[in-house]
C-alpha cells in the first residue's frame, strides 16, 4: 500500500502548489479546501482518527469559510462599509 501513500502525498503537494499559484483566488480557495480534506485522509492513514475529524471540520471547513468570506468582502468596493482612513490614534 506504499503506492497509495505516495499518490496521496503527491496529490497533496500538487494541490498545495496549485493553491498558491492559481491566478483566480476563488479557485485557489477551492484547491486549499480540497487540500484540507486530503490532509485529513493522511491523518487517518497515520492512525490519528481524531485529528482527521478536526482537520475536516476546522482545517478545511472553518478556514475555508473564512477565506471565502474574505473573498466576498474583497469583491465589494473599498470603503463601502469601513470607517475610512483613520489616523487619529496619536
Amino acid at each position: 500500500m506504499i503506492v497509495f501513500d505516495v499518490v496521496l502525498m503527491v496529490t497533496l503537494w500538487v494541490l498545495a502548489v496549485g493553491a498558491v499559484s492559481q491566478a483566480d483566488l476563488f479557485k485557489s480557495v477551492v484547491l486549499f479546501v480540497t487540500m484540507g480534506v486530503v490532509v485529513a485522509v493522511a491523518w487517518a492513514r497515520l492512525g490519528a482518527a481524531d485529528l482527521a475529524m478536526v482537520e475536516v471540520a476546522v482545517g478545511a471547513g472553518i478556514t475555508g469559510a473564512l477565506f471565502l468570506n474574505t473573498l466576498g468582502h474583497l469583491e465589494q468596493r473599498p470603503g463601502e462599509r469601513g470607517e475610512g482612513e483613520d489616523t487619529s490614534h496619536l
Binding site: 474574505t70 474583497l74 482612513e85 483613520d86
Partner: peptide
Amino acid sequence: LALIQRIYDQRGE
C-alpha cells in the same frame, strides 16, 4: 483575514 479586510476597507485595493 480580518486584518486584510480592514486594510482593504481603509487603504484600498
